[in-house]
Computed example of a mutant assay.
Amino acid sequence: MELAEHLSEFTQRDWQTVTDPDDRIRFALIGLGWFTEGAVIPALAESALCEVGTVVSGDRNKAARVRDEAGADRALTYDEFHAGEGRSNYDAVYIATPNATHLDFVESAADFGKAVLCEKPIAATTTHAERIAEACNDAGVMLMVGYRMHTNPAVRRMRELVSEGFVGDPVLVEGGMCQNVFEMISPDPNQWRLDADLAGGSALIDLGIYPLNTARFVLDTDPVSAQGTTTSSDDRFTEVDQHVSFEVEFEDGITAACVASQYAQQGSHFTVIGTDGRLTLDPAFFGEAQLAVRRGGAEADFSVEPVNEVAEEFDYFADRLLSGRDPVPDGEHALVDMRAIEAIYESAETGERELIKG
């Protein structure tokens, strides 16, 4: 079989079980920043499984505007959400507020018996992450964390090929993600991503989590130790890491070497190198992932129709909820990342390799 033919044997939505639901999942969108307005709401507009039921903001006027623009039923302030108003207008919540505030919204949603889709990282600290997972477990509600790469067809095909032994034994992973946060997100030097208390970090926790988590997903294994260094040369990054480089070792001896920066030319890549070949995503993490494969002297591209990763993520969540199946990136999954991130930050302070607490 030709290499290209082998690559083509893949179902794009291999995870989908629900195609014609009796009801769509109505979301309460909590946090109406640029990503929710510019990416999430348009994605839900094209979904067959999801819709906007309620919008929630700290700004009452903004909530009302977004409600009207998105065709939502209700607009709530944060206080009104926590008080339980409008609970009949949504089935699940999507949380896209600053990292340190996730816990309060998850706890309220769990008290209301609502399923939770929480943006990554799950929290600003491991302690908060543990409490989030516990709150959802205790309430018996589904918790999924927003790792969009899990539903990207190119990434899922990469995972399959690794599992099939296509590259032999995986040996090394290389990954990186860089952006200029003042151009991509906001020019404001006081934005919350640069506030250590609200964000928990910057380059590592916001961007480095992409190659870290994708490595875990593709290799289907977890890291056991880590080391890293962080630097912040720009005065706007006085509280958080501007650049990070880190290396993690996995349970089976594979290592991943990764870099991330919040103030650099935008770009991303991700490569798995094995004893018999290599798999590369370039670009990897900005919604345009395409897979290139090399084994021996043969090379081929796995080309897929462009997908809206946000729409795929929400539909996957809805599919799991409607079918009663557990999502893969749940709270326990996200906790592993938080513990690895904690170890990398500790290593940057101590200069030593740190074990990842289990």
Rank of each mutant, 00 (worst) to 15 (best):
D252N: 15
R131T: 12
L49G: 04
D188W: 03
V248N: 02
Q16P: 00
A133F: 10
P211E: 11
F217I: 10
T125K: 11
M158I: 07
L204N: 00
A257F: 01
V52E: 07
T54D: 08
D330C: 05
H333F: 15
T127H: 12
A28M: 09
A110E: 06
G71N: 01
V56G: 04
K120G: 08
V167T: 06
L143I: 04
T125R: 11
V171A: 14
A154L: 12
Y147K: 10
L207C: 12
R320F: 03
D337F: 14
S163Y: 02
V293C: 13
N152R: 01
F217R: 02
R295A: 13
Q265T: 12
L219T: 03
I41V: 14
F35L: 15
E51Q: 10
A64T: 04
V52R: 03
E164S: 12
E9K: 15
G176N: 07
D195F: 09
P327E: 09
E352N: 14
E312L: 09
A154Y: 02
A264H: 05
L32Y: 04
P329K: 03
V171W: 03
G267A: 07
R339D: 05
F237I: 05
A129H: 08
D206G: 05
E349A: 13
E164L: 11
A72E: 03
G140N: 08
A100D: 14
G58D: 11
A115S: 13
D138E: 15
V106Q: 07
A311G: 06
A43T: 03
Q191R: 09
A215I: 05
